[in-house]
Design a protein around this nucleic acid. Sequence first.
DNA 1: GAGGGGATTGTACCAAAGTTCAATACACCA
DNA 2: TGGTGTATTGAACTTTGGTACAATCCCCTC
Lengths: 206, 206
Amino acid sequence: MRSSEPIVFVVDDEDVMRDTVSRMVQQLGFAAQSFSSADAFLQFSRPDRPACLVLDVMLGGDSGFDVVAALDKGNVQVPTIFMTGSGSIPMSVRAMKTGAVEFLTKPFDKDALRDAIQSALTRSMEQRERRAELEALEALLATLTSREQEVLFHVTAGLLNKEIAMQLGVVEQTVKVHRARVMQKLAARSVADLVRFTDRVAALRA
Amino acid sequence: MRSSEPIVFVVDDEDVMRDTVSRMVQQLGFAAQSFSSADAFLQFSRPDRPACLVLDVMLGGDSGFDVVAALDKGNVQVPTIFMTGSGSIPMSVRAMKTGAVEFLTKPFDKDALRDAIQSALTRSMEQRERRAELEALEALLATLTSREQEVLFHVTAGLLNKEIAMQLGVVEQTVKVHRARVMQKLAARSVADLVRFTDRVAALRA
DNA sequence: GAGGGGATTGTACCAAAGTTCAATACACCA
DNA sequence: TGGTGTATTGAACTTTGGTACAATCCCCTC
Protein backbone atom coordinates (compact mmCIF):
# COMPACT_ATOMS: atom_id res chain seq x y z
CA MET A 1 0.00 0.00 0.00
CA ARG A 2 1.82 3.12 -1.19
CA SER A 3 0.93 6.28 0.68
CA SER A 4 -0.20 9.00 -1.69
CA GLU A 5 1.21 12.48 -1.71
CA PRO A 6 0.36 14.66 1.28
CA ILE A 7 -1.81 17.72 0.96
CA VAL A 8 -2.11 20.90 2.99
CA PHE A 9 -5.50 22.47 3.50
CA VAL A 10 -5.58 26.21 4.03
CA VAL A 11 -8.67 27.77 5.56
CA ASP A 12 -8.84 31.54 5.90
CA ASP A 13 -11.62 33.97 5.10
CA GLU A 14 -9.26 36.75 4.16
CA ASP A 15 -8.55 36.40 0.48
CA VAL A 16 -5.14 37.99 0.50
CA MET A 17 -3.82 36.03 3.42
CA ARG A 18 -5.27 32.78 2.13
CA ASP A 19 -3.60 33.21 -1.21
CA THR A 20 -0.35 34.22 0.38
CA VAL A 21 -0.27 31.19 2.65
CA SER A 22 -1.38 28.89 -0.10
CA ARG A 23 1.41 30.15 -2.31
CA MET A 24 3.93 29.70 0.47
CA VAL A 25 2.81 26.15 0.97
CA GLN A 26 3.23 25.38 -2.68
CA GLN A 27 6.62 27.09 -2.82
CA LEU A 28 7.64 24.76 -0.01
CA GLY A 29 6.82 21.87 -2.30
CA PHE A 30 3.51 20.75 -0.80
CA ALA A 31 0.21 20.39 -2.57
CA ALA A 32 -2.26 22.97 -1.25
CA GLN A 33 -6.00 23.39 -1.35
CA SER A 34 -7.70 26.52 -0.08
CA PHE A 35 -11.07 27.16 1.51
CA SER A 36 -12.58 30.54 2.29
CA SER A 37 -14.83 29.37 5.12
CA ALA A 38 -15.14 26.73 7.79
CA ASP A 39 -18.24 25.28 6.15
CA ALA A 40 -16.59 25.00 2.78
CA PHE A 41 -13.84 22.93 4.34
CA LEU A 42 -16.08 20.84 6.55
CA GLN A 43 -18.38 19.94 3.67
CA PHE A 44 -15.45 19.08 1.48
CA SER A 45 -14.88 15.35 1.36
CA ARG A 46 -11.27 14.87 2.17
CA PRO A 47 -9.24 12.58 -0.03
CA ASP A 48 -7.58 9.60 1.59
CA ARG A 49 -4.03 10.87 1.89
CA PRO A 50 -1.74 12.36 4.51
CA ALA A 51 -2.97 15.84 5.24
CA CYS A 52 -2.81 18.74 7.62
CA LEU A 53 -4.78 21.86 8.15
CA VAL A 54 -3.53 25.43 8.31
CA LEU A 55 -6.34 27.29 9.92
CA ASP A 56 -7.02 30.90 10.78
CA VAL A 57 -8.29 31.16 14.32
CA MET A 58 -10.56 34.04 13.42
CA LEU A 59 -13.13 32.95 10.88
CA GLY A 60 -16.41 34.55 9.99
CA GLY A 61 -19.06 32.27 11.40
CA ASP A 62 -17.21 29.62 13.29
CA SER A 63 -13.96 30.19 15.02
CA GLY A 64 -11.07 27.94 14.20
CA PHE A 65 -11.80 26.04 17.38
CA ASP A 66 -15.26 25.20 16.13
CA VAL A 67 -13.74 23.67 13.04
CA VAL A 68 -11.46 21.46 15.10
CA ALA A 69 -14.36 20.54 17.35
CA ALA A 70 -16.48 19.61 14.35
CA LEU A 71 -13.70 17.45 12.96
CA ASP A 72 -13.26 15.76 16.31
CA LYS A 73 -16.97 15.14 16.54
CA GLY A 74 -16.92 13.55 13.11
CA ASN A 75 -14.03 11.42 14.34
CA VAL A 76 -11.78 12.96 11.74
CA GLN A 77 -8.15 13.45 12.62
CA VAL A 78 -6.37 16.26 10.80
CA PRO A 79 -3.27 17.66 12.48
CA THR A 80 -3.88 21.38 12.69
CA ILE A 81 -1.68 24.42 12.53
CA PHE A 82 -3.37 27.56 13.77
CA MET A 83 -2.44 30.98 12.52
CA THR A 84 -3.60 34.37 13.60
CA GLY A 85 -2.94 38.01 13.06
CA SER A 86 -4.36 39.20 16.32
CA GLY A 87 -4.23 36.34 18.76
CA SER A 88 -3.63 36.27 22.47
CA ILE A 89 -1.63 34.02 24.73
CA PRO A 90 -4.75 32.42 26.25
CA MET A 91 -5.96 31.67 22.75
CA SER A 92 -2.69 30.05 21.77
CA VAL A 93 -2.66 28.00 24.96
CA ARG A 94 -6.18 26.81 24.32
CA ALA A 95 -5.19 25.84 20.80
CA MET A 96 -2.23 23.80 21.95
CA LYS A 97 -4.33 22.12 24.62
CA THR A 98 -6.75 20.90 21.97
CA GLY A 99 -3.81 19.19 20.33
CA ALA A 100 -2.76 21.74 17.73
CA VAL A 101 0.64 21.10 16.21
CA GLU A 102 1.64 24.74 16.06
CA PHE A 103 0.28 28.23 16.58
CA LEU A 104 1.76 30.77 14.20
CA THR A 105 1.45 34.52 14.45
CA LYS A 106 1.22 36.47 11.24
CA PRO A 107 3.39 37.36 9.64
CA PHE A 108 5.38 34.16 9.86
CA ASP A 109 8.28 33.17 7.70
CA LYS A 110 8.55 30.25 5.38
CA ASP A 111 10.83 28.31 7.68
CA ALA A 112 8.36 28.36 10.53
CA LEU A 113 5.59 27.22 8.21
CA ARG A 114 7.72 24.48 6.71
CA ASP A 115 8.68 23.10 10.11
CA ALA A 116 5.10 23.18 11.27
CA ILE A 117 3.80 21.46 8.15
CA GLN A 118 6.42 18.77 8.27
CA SER A 119 5.66 18.11 11.89
CA ALA A 120 1.93 18.01 11.19
CA LEU A 121 2.30 15.71 8.21
CA THR A 122 4.49 13.38 10.20
CA ARG A 123 1.77 13.20 12.79
CA SER A 124 -0.80 12.63 10.08
CA MET A 125 1.14 9.71 8.70
CA GLU A 126 1.47 8.20 12.14
CA GLN A 127 -2.27 8.50 12.61
CA ARG A 128 -2.83 6.86 9.27
CA GLU A 129 -0.51 4.01 10.08
CA ARG A 130 -2.28 3.46 13.32
CA ARG A 131 -5.65 3.52 11.63
CA ALA A 132 -4.45 1.22 8.89
CA GLU A 133 -3.18 -1.25 11.44
CA LEU A 134 -6.45 -1.19 13.31
CA GLU A 135 -8.42 -1.73 10.13
CA ALA A 136 -6.22 -4.64 9.17
CA LEU A 137 -6.67 -6.25 12.58
CA GLU A 138 -10.40 -5.61 12.56
CA ALA A 139 -10.64 -7.18 9.13
CA LEU A 140 -8.80 -10.20 10.40
CA LEU A 141 -11.05 -10.37 13.40
CA ALA A 142 -14.06 -10.16 11.11
CA THR A 143 -13.02 -13.36 9.38
CA LEU A 144 -13.84 -15.15 12.61
CA THR A 145 -17.39 -16.29 13.19
CA SER A 146 -19.01 -14.96 16.32
CA ARG A 147 -18.51 -18.29 18.04
CA GLU A 148 -14.85 -18.28 17.15
CA GLN A 149 -14.52 -14.78 18.54
CA GLU A 150 -16.08 -15.90 21.80
CA VAL A 151 -13.60 -18.72 22.05
CA LEU A 152 -10.74 -16.36 21.19
CA PHE A 153 -11.60 -13.99 24.00
CA HIS A 154 -11.95 -16.78 26.51
CA VAL A 155 -8.61 -18.22 25.44
CA THR A 156 -6.87 -14.87 25.78
CA ALA A 157 -8.51 -14.53 29.17
CA GLY A 158 -6.47 -17.55 30.15
CA LEU A 159 -9.28 -20.06 30.49
CA LEU A 160 -8.79 -23.76 29.87
CA ASN A 161 -10.66 -25.41 27.03
CA LYS A 162 -12.65 -27.22 29.66
CA GLU A 163 -13.67 -23.96 31.30
CA ILE A 164 -14.52 -22.32 28.02
CA ALA A 165 -16.70 -25.27 27.14
CA MET A 166 -18.65 -24.86 30.36
CA GLN A 167 -19.01 -21.12 29.82
CA LEU A 168 -20.41 -21.65 26.34
CA GLY A 169 -22.45 -24.67 27.28
CA VAL A 170 -20.72 -26.97 24.83
CA VAL A 171 -18.32 -29.86 24.96
CA GLU A 172 -14.57 -29.44 25.16
CA GLN A 173 -14.06 -30.93 21.72
CA THR A 174 -16.18 -28.19 20.20
CA VAL A 175 -13.95 -25.59 21.77
CA LYS A 176 -10.91 -27.31 20.33
CA VAL A 177 -12.37 -27.13 16.85
CA HIS A 178 -13.12 -23.42 17.13
CA ARG A 179 -9.76 -22.76 18.71
CA ALA A 180 -7.90 -24.50 15.92
CA ARG A 181 -9.78 -22.48 13.35
CA VAL A 182 -8.98 -19.26 15.22
CA MET A 183 -5.29 -20.07 15.26
CA GLN A 184 -5.39 -20.82 11.57
CA LYS A 185 -7.36 -17.74 10.53
CA LEU A 186 -5.25 -15.39 12.61
CA ALA A 187 -2.04 -17.11 11.53
CA ALA A 188 -1.16 -17.44 15.20
CA ARG A 189 1.51 -19.86 16.31
CA SER A 190 0.85 -19.65 20.02
CA VAL A 191 -1.45 -18.37 22.72
CA ALA A 192 0.99 -15.49 23.17
CA ASP A 193 0.19 -14.38 19.63
CA LEU A 194 -3.53 -14.45 20.38
CA VAL A 195 -3.12 -12.39 23.54
CA ARG A 196 -1.05 -9.79 21.74
CA PHE A 197 -3.57 -9.71 18.91
CA THR A 198 -6.56 -9.00 21.13
CA ASP A 199 -4.67 -6.58 23.34
CA ARG A 200 -3.38 -4.69 20.32
CA VAL A 201 -6.90 -4.37 18.92
CA ALA A 202 -8.14 -3.09 22.26
CA ALA A 203 -5.28 -0.58 22.51
CA LEU A 204 -5.86 0.74 19.01
CA ARG A 205 -9.58 1.04 19.57
CA ALA A 206 -9.05 3.13 22.69
CA MET B 1 0.06 2.87 50.54
CA ARG B 2 -1.68 6.15 51.33
CA SER B 3 -0.77 9.02 49.08
CA SER B 4 0.39 11.99 51.06
CA GLU B 5 -0.92 15.49 50.65
CA PRO B 6 0.01 17.26 47.44
CA ILE B 7 2.30 20.24 47.40
CA VAL B 8 2.68 23.17 45.03
CA PHE B 9 6.13 24.57 44.35
CA VAL B 10 6.31 28.21 43.41
CA VAL B 11 9.43 29.49 41.71
CA ASP B 12 9.73 33.20 40.95
CA ASP B 13 12.59 35.62 41.44
CA GLU B 14 10.31 38.57 42.06
CA ASP B 15 9.63 38.68 45.76
CA VAL B 16 6.26 40.36 45.55
CA MET B 17 4.86 38.13 42.87
CA ARG B 18 6.24 35.01 44.52
CA ASP B 19 4.57 35.86 47.81
CA THR B 20 1.35 36.78 46.11
CA VAL B 21 1.20 33.52 44.21
CA SER B 22 2.23 31.51 47.20
CA ARG B 23 -0.51 33.11 49.24
CA MET B 24 -3.07 32.41 46.54
CA VAL B 25 -2.04 28.78 46.44
CA GLN B 26 -2.49 28.46 50.17
CA GLN B 27 -5.80 30.25 50.10
CA LEU B 28 -6.92 27.66 47.58
CA GLY B 29 -6.19 25.03 50.17
CA PHE B 30 -2.94 23.63 48.81
CA ALA B 31 0.36 23.37 50.61
CA ALA B 32 2.89 25.71 49.04
CA GLN B 33 6.64 26.01 49.07
CA SER B 34 8.45 28.93 47.46
CA PHE B 35 11.84 29.28 45.80
CA SER B 36 13.45 32.49 44.64
CA SER B 37 15.65 30.95 41.97
CA ALA B 38 15.89 28.03 39.62
CA ASP B 39 18.94 26.69 41.41
CA ALA B 40 17.28 26.83 44.78
CA PHE B 41 14.48 24.66 43.47
CA LEU B 42 16.68 22.27 41.52
CA GLN B 43 18.92 21.66 44.50
CA PHE B 44 15.97 21.12 46.75
CA SER B 45 15.30 17.44 47.26
CA ARG B 46 11.67 16.98 46.53
CA PRO B 47 9.59 15.00 48.96
CA ASP B 48 7.81 11.93 47.70
CA ARG B 49 4.30 13.26 47.27
CA PRO B 50 2.05 14.51 44.48
CA ALA B 51 3.37 17.84 43.36
CA CYS B 52 3.30 20.48 40.68
CA LEU B 53 5.38 23.45 39.80
CA VAL B 54 4.24 27.02 39.24
CA LEU B 55 7.11 28.59 37.43
CA ASP B 56 7.89 32.05 36.16
CA VAL B 57 9.17 31.89 32.60
CA MET B 58 11.51 34.79 33.20
CA LEU B 59 14.05 33.93 35.84
CA GLY B 60 17.36 35.49 36.56
CA GLY B 61 19.97 32.99 35.41
CA ASP B 62 18.03 30.19 33.83
CA SER B 63 14.78 30.67 32.04
CA GLY B 64 11.83 28.59 33.11
CA PHE B 65 12.51 26.33 30.16
CA ASP B 66 15.93 25.55 31.51
CA VAL B 67 14.38 24.40 34.74
CA VAL B 68 12.03 22.05 32.94
CA ALA B 69 14.89 20.79 30.79
CA ALA B 70 16.98 20.14 33.90
CA LEU B 71 14.14 18.24 35.52
CA ASP B 72 13.63 16.18 32.37
CA LYS B 73 17.32 15.42 32.23
CA GLY B 74 17.21 14.22 35.81
CA ASN B 75 14.26 12.05 34.83
CA VAL B 76 12.06 13.95 37.23
CA GLN B 77 8.45 14.46 36.30
CA VAL B 78 6.79 17.51 37.79
CA PRO B 79 3.73 18.82 35.96
CA THR B 80 4.46 22.47 35.34
CA ILE B 81 2.36 25.61 35.16
CA PHE B 82 4.12 28.52 33.58
CA MET B 83 3.31 32.10 34.42
CA THR B 84 4.58 35.29 32.96
CA GLY B 85 4.05 39.02 33.11
CA SER B 86 5.48 39.79 29.74
CA GLY B 87 5.25 36.66 27.64
CA SER B 88 4.68 36.20 23.97
CA ILE B 89 2.61 33.79 21.95
CA PRO B 90 5.66 31.94 20.63
CA MET B 91 6.85 31.55 24.19
CA SER B 92 3.53 30.13 25.34
CA VAL B 93 3.43 27.74 22.40
CA ARG B 94 6.90 26.54 23.18
CA ALA B 95 5.89 25.99 26.79
CA MET B 96 2.86 23.94 25.86
CA LYS B 97 4.90 21.89 23.40
CA THR B 98 7.26 20.91 26.17
CA GLY B 99 4.30 19.48 27.99
CA ALA B 100 3.32 22.32 30.27
CA VAL B 101 -0.09 21.97 31.87
CA GLU B 102 -0.96 25.64 31.59
CA PHE B 103 0.52 28.99 30.70
CA LEU B 104 -0.89 31.83 32.76
CA THR B 105 -0.47 35.52 32.09
CA LYS B 106 -0.18 37.81 35.08
CA PRO B 107 -2.30 38.98 36.56
CA PHE B 108 -4.38 35.81 36.68
CA ASP B 109 -7.32 35.19 38.93
CA LYS B 110 -7.67 32.55 41.57
CA ASP B 111 -10.02 30.41 39.51
CA ALA B 112 -7.53 30.07 36.71
CA LEU B 113 -4.81 29.11 39.14
CA ARG B 114 -7.04 26.62 40.93
CA ASP B 115 -8.05 24.90 37.69
CA ALA B 116 -4.44 24.75 36.54
CA ILE B 117 -3.21 23.35 39.84
CA GLN B 118 -5.91 20.73 40.01
CA SER B 119 -5.17 19.63 36.49
CA ALA B 120 -1.45 19.51 37.21
CA LEU B 121 -1.89 17.57 40.43
CA THR B 122 -4.17 15.10 38.69
CA ARG B 123 -1.46 14.53 36.14
CA SER B 124 1.09 14.19 38.92
CA MET B 125 -0.95 11.51 40.60
CA GLU B 126 -1.35 9.63 37.34
CA GLN B 127 2.41 9.75 36.86
CA ARG B 128 2.93 8.46 40.37
CA GLU B 129 0.48 5.62 39.87
CA ARG B 130 2.23 4.66 36.70
CA ARG B 131 5.59 4.77 38.38
CA ALA B 132 4.32 2.82 41.35
CA GLU B 133 2.92 0.14 39.09
CA LEU B 134 6.20 -0.15 37.22
CA GLU B 135 8.14 -0.41 40.46
CA ALA B 136 5.82 -3.11 41.70
CA LEU B 137 6.18 -5.11 38.51
CA GLU B 138 9.94 -4.63 38.47
CA ALA B 139 10.12 -5.84 42.06
CA LEU B 140 8.13 -8.90 41.12
CA LEU B 141 10.37 -9.52 38.14
CA ALA B 142 13.39 -9.18 40.40
CA THR B 143 12.20 -12.14 42.48
CA LEU B 144 12.95 -14.31 39.46
CA THR B 145 16.44 -15.68 39.01
CA SER B 146 18.13 -14.77 35.76
CA ARG B 147 17.47 -18.23 34.42
CA GLU B 148 13.81 -17.95 35.28
CA GLN B 149 13.65 -14.60 33.53
CA GLU B 150 15.16 -16.14 30.41
CA VAL B 151 12.55 -18.85 30.45
CA LEU B 152 9.81 -16.28 31.04
CA PHE B 153 10.77 -14.25 28.00
CA HIS B 154 10.99 -17.32 25.81
CA VAL B 155 7.60 -18.48 27.00
CA THR B 156 6.00 -15.11 26.30
CA ALA B 157 7.66 -15.20 22.90
CA GLY B 158 5.47 -18.21 22.23
CA LEU B 159 8.15 -20.88 22.19
CA LEU B 160 7.50 -24.46 23.20
CA ASN B 161 9.32 -25.92 26.19
CA LYS B 162 11.21 -28.09 23.76
CA GLU B 163 12.38 -25.05 21.79
CA ILE B 164 13.31 -23.12 24.90
CA ALA B 165 15.34 -26.06 26.10
CA MET B 166 17.31 -26.09 22.87
CA GLN B 167 17.86 -22.34 23.00
CA LEU B 168 19.22 -22.55 26.52
CA GLY B 169 21.12 -25.75 25.93
CA VAL B 170 19.29 -27.68 28.61
CA VAL B 171 16.75 -30.46 28.76
CA GLU B 172 13.02 -29.91 28.49
CA GLN B 173 12.43 -30.98 32.06
CA THR B 174 14.69 -28.20 33.31
CA VAL B 175 12.60 -25.67 31.46
CA LYS B 176 9.47 -27.10 33.03
CA VAL B 177 10.92 -26.61 36.49
CA HIS B 178 11.85 -22.99 35.85
CA ARG B 179 8.55 -22.35 34.17
CA ALA B 180 6.61 -23.70 37.11
CA ARG B 181 8.55 -21.49 39.48
CA VAL B 182 7.91 -18.46 37.27
CA MET B 183 4.19 -19.11 37.29
CA GLN B 184 4.26 -19.45 41.05
CA LYS B 185 6.36 -16.37 41.76
CA LEU B 186 4.34 -14.17 39.42
CA ALA B 187 1.08 -15.62 40.67
CA ALA B 188 0.17 -16.30 37.07
CA ARG B 189 -2.57 -18.73 36.21
CA SER B 190 -1.93 -18.94 32.49
CA VAL B 191 0.44 -18.03 29.72
CA ALA B 192 -1.88 -15.12 28.93
CA ASP B 193 -1.03 -13.67 32.34
CA LEU B 194 2.68 -13.98 31.62
CA VAL B 195 2.35 -12.27 28.26
CA ARG B 196 0.40 -9.39 29.76
CA PHE B 197 2.92 -9.12 32.57
CA THR B 198 5.94 -8.78 30.30
CA ASP B 199 4.16 -6.52 27.82
CA ARG B 200 2.98 -4.26 30.63
CA VAL B 201 6.47 -3.95 32.01
CA ALA B 202 7.77 -3.09 28.55
CA ALA B 203 5.02 -0.52 28.03
CA LEU B 204 5.67 1.17 31.37
CA ARG B 205 9.40 1.25 30.78
CA ALA B 206 8.95 2.99 27.45
C1' DG C 1 -35.46 -29.28 -2.33
C1' DA C 2 -30.43 -29.10 -2.93
C1' DG C 3 -26.26 -27.10 -1.41
C1' DG C 4 -23.21 -24.46 1.61
C1' DG C 5 -21.59 -22.51 5.86
C1' DG C 6 -21.54 -22.79 10.64
C1' DA C 7 -22.02 -25.23 15.11
C1' DT C 8 -21.83 -29.30 17.35
C1' DT C 9 -20.28 -33.90 18.97
C1' DG C 10 -17.80 -38.28 18.86
C1' DT C 11 -13.64 -41.30 18.59
C1' DA C 12 -8.89 -41.97 18.48
C1' DC C 13 -4.36 -40.62 18.90
C1' DC C 14 -0.26 -37.87 19.64
C1' DA C 15 2.19 -33.88 21.51
C1' DA C 16 2.86 -30.66 25.02
C1' DA C 17 2.31 -28.95 29.59
C1' DG C 18 2.23 -29.61 34.37
C1' DT C 19 3.14 -32.21 38.78
C1' DT C 20 5.63 -34.99 42.04
C1' DC C 21 9.62 -37.10 44.03
C1' DA C 22 14.35 -37.69 43.91
C1' DA C 23 19.06 -36.74 42.98
C1' DT C 24 23.45 -34.37 41.51
C1' DA C 25 26.37 -30.33 40.93
C1' DC C 26 28.12 -25.82 41.82
C1' DA C 27 28.87 -21.33 43.96
C1' DC C 28 28.75 -18.57 47.87
C1' DC C 29 28.36 -17.40 52.68
C1' DA C 30 28.46 -17.71 57.74
C1' DT D 1 32.99 -26.78 56.49
C1' DG D 2 28.19 -27.14 56.56
C1' DG D 3 24.15 -24.83 54.83
C1' DT D 4 21.64 -22.24 51.41
C1' DG D 5 20.20 -21.08 46.91
C1' DT D 6 20.37 -22.08 42.13
C1' DA D 7 20.66 -25.02 38.13
C1' DT D 8 20.22 -29.25 36.36
C1' DT D 9 18.43 -33.92 35.18
C1' DG D 10 15.71 -38.14 35.59
C1' DA D 11 11.50 -41.01 35.99
C1' DA D 12 6.72 -41.60 36.28
C1' DC D 13 2.33 -39.80 35.85
C1' DT D 14 -1.81 -36.75 34.92
C1' DT D 15 -3.86 -33.14 32.53
C1' DT D 16 -4.37 -30.32 28.74
C1' DG D 17 -3.78 -29.05 23.94
C1' DG D 18 -3.77 -30.18 19.11
C1' DT D 19 -4.94 -32.97 15.06
C1' DA D 20 -7.54 -36.06 11.99
C1' DC D 21 -11.69 -38.07 10.38
C1' DA D 22 -16.43 -38.55 10.51
C1' DA D 23 -21.03 -37.42 11.44
C1' DT D 24 -25.30 -34.72 12.67
C1' DC D 25 -28.02 -30.57 12.91
C1' DC D 26 -29.62 -25.98 11.64
C1' DC D 27 -30.18 -21.93 8.91
C1' DC D 28 -30.11 -19.62 4.77
C1' DT D 29 -29.87 -19.17 -0.13
C1' DC D 30 -30.20 -20.51 -4.97
